[in-house]
């Protein structure tokens, strides 16, 4: 399946892109992270500390064990700093 993956803040800067379409068989957010890490050193480094990252599926904040079943859009970003 194809999923739109978005990156924000320092993760976007580190990866050099804010958005890409990913062809994946991942069943969960964590599995998608494993696939991204396996791509190259840049991704492996950016996703090395998942404790410093948050994820959203179809624009809802989720835990990393969340299912990607039917998902169209996944986003990764550092903890939010609004207000």
């Amino acid at each position: 399946m194809k999923i739109d993956v978005h990156y924000f803040a320092w993760l976007r800067e580190r990866l050099g892109t804010g958005r890409e379409t990913v062809e994946t068989e991942a069943g969960t957010v964590a599995e998608l992270i494993d696939e991204l890490r396996a791509r190259d050193e840049g991704y492996a480094h950016a996703f090395s500390d998942t404790g410093a990252l948050r994820a959203a599926v179809d624009q809802d904040l989720v835990e990393f064990d969340a299912s990607l079943d039917g998902a169209r859009e996944v986003a990764f970003f550092p903890p939010m700093t609004g207000g």
Partner: peptide, 14 residues
């Protein structure tokens, strides 16, 4: 509202 939007609304400051 402030407590929630501080850490649950997707904004990042630089």
């Amino acid at each position: 509202l402030m407590d929630y939007l501080k850490s649950r609304a997707p904004f990042w400051k630089k």
